[in-house]
């Protein structure tokens, strides 16, 4: 019995490590729009990994593994944000401003690409939670059908919302560029 438990744990560890290898980079990118501070990002990643480890024992393959991983990751991230409360949201706004000013500095100083990524992340972070989730999944390369499965929406709804969010991101980016040109 003890040996069987050890074997089960070992096989679960193997599965988990494969899962982290496959989705690790994606999780890292994802947490960047929920937390700005590196140490908070690390905490959130750890929370997600623990939830995935615990949930793996319950995963029955009713959905694709990737769908399940994204569901767990986003649900943990949403819960994490809600648990931080409004006081922390104010801190996040402050952090967002800091990020923005850092991005502005980078514009002048160095890599334009780096700055563009920061700007994109800042705009995504400013979106309401469902739109944020939608756009992150899209940027990770999931199809509308896959996003629909993760979010529990219809594919049509996903496409419509995606068009709207992309337009919103485009407007935000244009507004910033125009502000920079004027200043």
């Amino acid at each position: 019995m003890q040996r069987r438990t050890a074997e089960t744990t070992e096989s679960r560890t193997g599965e988990f490590q494969e899962l982290v290898e496959a989705f690790g980079p994606s999780l890292r990118r994802m947490v960047g729009v929920y937390e700005f501070d590196r140490s908070l990002q690390d905490d959130l990643v750890q929370e997600i990994l623990v939830a995935l480890w615990r949930g793996l024992a319950l995963f029955r393959g009713e959905s694709k593994l990737s769908t399940w991983v994204y569901r767990v990751a986003h649900n943990v991230a949403l819960k994490h944000r809600r648990c931080r409360g409004r006081a922390r949201d104010r801190q996040a706004e402050f952090e967002s401003d800091q990020l923005a000013s850092a991005a502005n500095r980078v514009d002048v100083d160095a890599s334009a690409k780096h700055s563009a990524i920061d700007e994109l992340k800042r705009h995504i972070a400013a979106l309401p939670a469902p739109e944020r989730q939608l756009v992150v999944l899209h940027l990770e390369g999931l199809s509308s059908t896959e996003i629909a499965e993760v979010m529990g929406l219809s594919s049509t709804n996903v496409s419509t919302r995606l068009t709207r969010v992309r337009a919103k991101l485009g407007r935000a980016s244009a507004a910033r560029s125009s502000k920079e040109t004027h200043s």
Binding site: R54, R71, V72, P130, M151, G152, L153
Partner: peptide, 10 residues
Amino acid sequence: SAALGLDGQA
């Protein structure tokens, strides 16, 4: 743990 595997809406 089980709820965390639900889709976003659920």
